[in-house]
């Protein structure tokens, strides 16, 4: 389980994180985000610094347009969320099973190993790396 330390002035550039075998995706290419993803970096460009909480996020996007999300912000046990997602071109949005919408919609760039979600107002860029499965250690450490 990789811990992310969100640290000050984290100016990871987009190119540096996405290992690009291709610099851009063709306009009409169909993007595929299905798979299991682990958050690997967060770039918050509008603030000078984060706190030093750790952020652990795993999300599984499924073929049937549902998703399951495990997150641990700081200390404690993982929270589990689920819901639906829609990808329209490179525009991703979704809602949780309790009806509430995601905090933001995102523009997507993705390839076989990396997924980058940029919030619509550009203030936050989250990068995920593809993994085989959500680790057992996460599933054993869920909130009751």
């Amino acid at each position: 389980m990789k811990k992310i330390y969100a640290f000050a002035f984290a100016m990871l550039t987009l190119l540096g994180v996405v290992s690009c075998r291709q610099n851009h995706l063709a306009q009409d290419e169909v993007l595929d985000i299905v798979g299991v993803w682990e958050l690997s970096a967060v770039d918050v460009t509008k603030a000078a610094a984060f706190g030093d909480e750790t952020i652990n996020v795993y999300v599984t996007f499924s073929q049937d347009n549902t998703f399951v999300l495990y997150q641990l912000l700081g200390e404690g046990r993982y929270s589990e969320y689920s819901g639906e997602w829609t990808l329209s071109g490179n525009f991703l949005f979704g809602s949780y099973s309790d009806g509430s919408r995601w905090a933001s919609s995102y523009t997507v760039t993705v390839n076989k190993v990396s997924l980058v979600l940029t919030t619509s107002d550009g203030s936050q860029i989250s990068t995920y790396r593809k993994i085989d499965a959500v680790p057992e250690s996460v599933l054993e450490n869920l909130k009751y």
């Binding site: 999300l69 997150q71 949780y96 905090a103 919609s105």
Partner: peptide, 9 residues
């Protein structure tokens, strides 16, 4: 639009 439940996305 905020995720009212605190979800990361």
């Amino acid at each position: 639009v905020v995720s009212k439940n605190g979800g990361w996305l």
